[in-house]
């Protein structure tokens, strides 16, 4: 079984629109939306949820006001400035607490509770293009990397159970925790970039990230005709960095029109972008075998 991860470094280059196309084109696959804090794939695939489960990770410190004697030791020890003191009433800001438990351990009154936390929810669904695993991280929550790992492992289990040979992973922007969790151990990374200075800058960093984790990386340039000079520059960078450019997708306003009608552009019609994406997928699936 292969795991194909689509990432971009820079946000908004077209990851999800492209993954939705692959969903329509690929046979025998599971989809995994690993952009857990701003998931969008469900908007195009309209999943029917078959199973939902809470995502529990980490703990949260909560002061029991009645048992607190106001000594202030918790505030002194907290490195995350999560504890505030208003007229000797100590409270913990849940959005700042990193759940380290130092205050809980050292409170002389044992006045701090430390319950497990529910940080979100994850789903197994059925879509018109097959099974999909997705999730919703709670607002202002942490542990996105753990949730990404959970979504990936559930998707792999489904692939194994149903004899499917590909997991297609929609990643998140950036190069931090959730991105690392979405690509470690994957078979191949496809970086979606755009012909802008920012696109190139972020591609460079994400290419270094893939090579840091020793994952083979491919690239595709979206809206390549917006700035042909930059496309040339990006192509040269890819050659030097050993990233094969597997597709150049033209700027096509019908991609947004397709999104408005909740479809991938390859389902929407034989638009210029759709034609190129079909070829790109053919190329990519040959490489995946």
């Amino acid at each position: 079984m292969k795991e194909l991860v689509i990432i971009s470094g820079k946000g908004g280059t077209g990851k999800t629109s492209l993954v939705a196309c692959f969903a329509a084109l690929a046979k025998k696959k599971v989809l995994a939306d690993c952009d857990v804090d701003a998931a969008d794939l469900h908007l195009l695939l309209e999943p029917r949820i078959l199973k939902r489960a809470p995502f529990q990770a980490g703990r949260e410190a909560i002061i029991r006001e009645a048992d607190c004697n106001g000594c202030g030791l918790c505030q002194k020890y907290c490195r995350f400035k999560a504890i505030s003191n208003l007229e000797n009433k100590f409270t913990i800001d849940p959005t700042a607490c990193e759940g380290c438990g130092v205050c809980v351990y050292f409170c002389p009154q044992k006045a701090i509770d430390f319950p497990e936390k529910t940080c979100g929810e994850w789903f197994i669904s059925d879509t018109r293009h097959g099974p999909m695993v997705h999730a919703k991280l709670g607002i202002a929550e942490e542990n996105s990397g753990k949730l990404v790992s959970l979504v990936r492992s559930q998707a792999k289990t489904i692939a194994q159970e149903q004899g499917l040979d590909l997991v297609i992973i929609d990643g998140s922007p950036g190069i931090g925790c959730p991105v690392i969790a979405s690509l470690t151990g994957a078979s191949v990374v496809l970086v979606v970039t755009e012909p802008t200075q920012s696109g190139l800058h972020d591609l460079e960093r994400v290419a270094k990230l893939s090579s840091h984790f020793k994952i083979p990386a491919l690239a595709c340039i979206n809206k390549y005709d917006i700035n042909p000079e930059m496309t040339e520059k990006i192509t040269r960078f890819c050659e030097q960095a050993g990233l094969q450019v597997v597709g150049r997708i033209p700027y096509d306003p019908l991609v947004t029109k397709a999104q408005l009608s909740r479809q991938s552009v390859v389902e929407f019609g034989d638009t210029p972008a759709a034609v190129e994406i079909r070829q790109l997928w053919q190329h990519l699936s040959d490489l995946l075998v």
Partner: peptide, 27 residues
């Protein structure tokens, strides 16, 4: 940064005002 998890919270906590930039699409 983009998103809604810890890096964003860290970046915007304590500011006086947040401007949210969006585009007029379903995403």
């Amino acid at each position: 940064p983009p998103g809604t998890s810890c890096p964003v919270i860290e970046a915007i906590r304590g500011v006086d005002y947040v401007i949210l930039v969006t585009e007029p699409t379903p995403f």
